[in-house]
Design a protein around this nucleic acid. Structure first.
Lengths: 208, 208
DNA sequence: AGCATTAGTCTACGACTGTAGACATGCAAG
DNA sequence: CTTGCATGTCTACAGTCGTAGACTAATGCT
């Protein structure tokens, strides 16, 4: 019978979690190619070989980190998507979560910083399609819902990149409320599709 | 006397250009950390050391490549920004230039793939702010022009990432005309800078 | 012709990479 | 106690990385 003793120094599950947490932070900071297993191990207080012992290889560790981090509901939750003005809610959440130093949006950040690895990009696409796009698409009505969902993700990714990675001063120094005002209608347009929100449900004519 | 490699063309300018071209293609494919100087050199038909002889270091080579590639006018040209329906023009150009295999938009692609290097990101921000954002901002009228310009760049970057890097199937397989129809109003909204001010429906473009 | 300069290559080094195998150690049970 | 296993470390290896220094060969000049 196994004892329910409190976490000791030798605790496989806790060590595994520590490695995962260290890897997540490291990958978000420097990407797949930018960080080594020794550095990840040091962040978890173990040696490099233990990382491979638990996860098989660096690539498998990355895949697990990506899966775990992407699975975290963040901006595109059912609540936000089901709100009365989803565009505004999405914009507000995005602006809030891409403040300098924010870590809740690590999933995308990890992918952005891992663009130098072809394999990492494949893993990222898999996770994005599994979690975010599928969830979003089912929440959207109307034509081309998959495309509109993908464009919502594109806008989220683009804003995060320019704000957190590139660090465009116009976005880092802007008033959050201004950004929300500008982004809200964009998201709303994508959520609504061809029909504008509010009373009128008639299609807008296009001048192509 | 040891036999050396066969005599090559002795043309400094041409060799330099060959290295730059090889580096641009390589960086666009694998990013700063994903490609080595030996590989770049091989692509130009020279040895690795010559790369450093001409450019000092890999980092300086990257900076030069980034500067040269970013300086290429692409989507946000004065003509497009001054068109009657700039949003539609921007969207059409973006969709066209982010087709699989397109290379005219290398500048952004290089930055996206170089996110694992902090230094590369700094160089990229510098170039983006120098070329694109400044040019765009002067073309925009109204309040918060810098922020709106930055958001245009964000949307461009996001679409390119999801379409060319991540390869979201919803975007790669979509009909270009559908994407243009969805993206056009978004860009137009940012260019116009009109204030949503509550549930008011969007104003038509000034051309009518 | 001879010399100087330029264009280019070769060898090598120290640091780092991911990871395989052998080894050590703490914990629970017989 | 001893045994067995899970947990973790140490050493080492075969690469690759960027780059420094010495060397060679082709060109330009006189």
């Amino acid at each position: 019978m196994r004892k329910r003793a409190p976490a000791r120094r030798r605790n496989a599950a806790a060590t595994r979690d520590a490695i995962l947490a260290s890897a997540r932070a490291a990958f978000a900071r420097a990407g797949y190619d930018g960080v080594g297993v020794r550095e990840i191990a040091q962040g978890a207080g173990v040696t490099a070989m233990l990382v491979n012992r638990y996860f098989g290889s660096k690539e498998q560790l990355f895949a697990e980190v990506a899966a775990a981090t992407m699975a975290i509901p963040h901006i595109l939750t059912p609540e936000i998507l089901g709100a009365r003005a989803p565009g505004h809610e999405i914009a507000a959440a995005l602006v809030e979560l891409t403040k300098p130093g924010a870590t809740r949006l690590d999933g995308f950040l990890i992918m952005h910083r891992s663009g130098s690895s072809q394999r990492a990009a494949e893993i990222g696409r898999e996770q994005i399609e599994r979690h975010h796009q599928r969830a979003m698409r089912t929440a959207l009505r109307g034509r081309l819902s998959a495309q509109r969902a993908a464009l919502v993700l594109s806008l989220v990714a683009g804003v995060q990149i320019m704000r957190q990675m590139i660090g465009l001063s116009a976005l880092t120094d802007a008033k959050p409320s201004d950004l929300v005002k500008m982004l809200g209608p964009l998201f709303q347009h994508l959520v609504d599709g061809e029909r504008p929100a509010g009373g009128r449900s008639r299609r807008r004519s296009r001048d192509a």
